[in-house]
Nucleic acid binder design. Sequence first.
DNA 1: TTGTAGGCGTTATCAG
DNA 2: CTGATAACGCCTACAA
Lengths: 339, 339
Amino acid sequence: MAVTIEDIAKEAGVSISTVSRVMNGTKPVSEELRDRVYEVIKKNKFKPNTLARGLVTKKTNMIGVIVSDISNVVFGAMTKGINSVCESKGYTIMICESGGELERELKLLELMEDKQIDGVLFAGIDVNRVLVDSILKRNYPTVLVTQEASIGDGIVDTVVHNNTKAMSDAVQFLLDNGHRRIAYLGGPKHDFSSGKKRLQGYKETLLKAGIEPLDSYIEQVEFSFRAGYEGMKKIYEENSILPTAVVAGSDVIAVAAIQFLRNVHIDVPNDISIMGFDDSDFSTYFQPELSTVRISYYHEGEMAAQELIRWIEGETTEVKTHYVPHKIIRRSTIKAFNQ
Amino acid sequence: MAVTIEDIAKEAGVSISTVSRVMNGTKPVSEELRDRVYEVIKKNKFKPNTLARGLVTKKTNMIGVIVSDISNVVFGAMTKGINSVCESKGYTIMICESGGELERELKLLELMEDKQIDGVLFAGIDVNRVLVDSILKRNYPTVLVTQEASIGDGIVDTVVHNNTKAMSDAVQFLLDNGHRRIAYLGGPKHDFSSGKKRLQGYKETLLKAGIEPLDSYIEQVEFSFRAGYEGMKKIYEENSILPTAVVAGSDVIAVAAIQFLRNVHIDVPNDISIMGFDDSDFSTYFQPELSTVRISYYHEGEMAAQELIRWIEGETTEVKTHYVPHKIIRRSTIKAFNQ
DNA sequence: TTGTAGGCGTTATCAG
DNA sequence: CTGATAACGCCTACAA
């Protein structure tokens, strides 16, 4: 059996409250006793039982993180950001994987509560009304990361990149480079940020430039290499007039598209330009290097964790959507037509 | 304040022990009372407080996972495997990142204990005597994943792939394909499996084929694109006679090497063959596709988690090293000289 | 400044 | 089968 506060008290010849006080600095203790107690603590390598402590303080210093796919590089980067601030603030993270399924997301939200975590960081796929209700009715702070609620802003605290604007910027970048026939090979429909926000950014920007979006130029696929490959294939097969550029929903999708095009002897960027999304590490591993929209998921994770901890620790926090900036990165998969 | 077992007991008109019993099925309860209690539980959505429970049962159903780098795809896959079995067995995982620093690894091992986890899965960089001692003296089950102890087998329970054999197989594969000048561009020296085991496999296999390993053909670098690139550059610059093949420590390193070679107009595989390691998802995204050694980190994670849980739940477990199989995957970065 | 005692929410032991 | 009651290890008024 591990050594308890009582053992320490006994050995130091003081009461357990005194031991508690020197450990937590919660009330003044005479120097003499303090030293004596410290000594005994060190000697016995005493570590207070966090469960017992949590039971009375209602605080566990643990925060939950819910993501759809642990092995996804995007969430890897985000988690790293989260972890860096949590560690420095004395919090430990509990990561759970939802697979993007509503059922499991709801179950995990509950699991977190059971575990008495202090708060959760939620990276959903489509944070709809059911999810929002579930989040709001719980008695722990929650901030959304990576994905805003699909039923409107200002309802739950959020840290995201502006998906609409990011995609809009990507399309505008292509327009600025003289492209007019721009296809969209984005993430899945059921993913709110990809299925709705980004597609919206794509369409609006084309429209603003006087270009009517073409259904046959729009393909929404899963975030995987295979899906990206098949999506590009479909666009290729079903259009007699090919686009001169494609905006992708992720770098993986972009790379898959390039691979397909190469297989049908279409050169990137000479025949078709490709724009990635995310700026994953590997986007410079390829030849040609990927032009892309840089999203700092690491930073997004950091911000979200900071926001959550601020909330947990009682610093008044306004429920709002915080945007982390994105940036267009030009590399070799874009060819300019104008000038 | 959340509803407690006492509230339920009161509302159902029974004692708290009865409520506890119906929840845990620990002792028989008359059907009548059981139904009545269940009703009240459902109605109030009562969830027992895990902290209080853990305090008395000494079990938290949480297992800790310590990795050096959360955003590394290898650990992403492993974690996913771990998570899948943990979830099915009712355990939740607590992931911590050590950065591969001994200090932090030791600190995390302690943190885990503080949190009263039931056991930990440890993926270290060099599990030396200090670490092993620290692991053994703790009072929770621990199994090493991905990396065996550097001070010998059979001391702590382990699930790994056979690094020596895997690298040996890779080299043998190259030998079988007629290569004689094979360079080694592996992981960092301080990483036991890469710095020691794999290098050993490389040297032994060459020796067995009557080839004396060349120092100038051996480069040990960090697991990053940049480091891989620089490492390949060094081999290129410092050898008047270039190797005809290179075995890499990871797919990322392999891709980086290819990139460098391309930049100095050396063709892969016609001029130099490249063998990757890991078989990461992206190894088929490139042209040419990467020949590599497939390691199923997902499966490794699964096995380790199973082993740990078996241990936690008291099924006698023999402390030994479990190997998960690897496999040579031939793709396009290898050219055969013979036949 | 220090100690006593009650309570946090459960499980488990022991009578009934 | 059921119900008190004592732990579990710690924090925190309340007293001294």
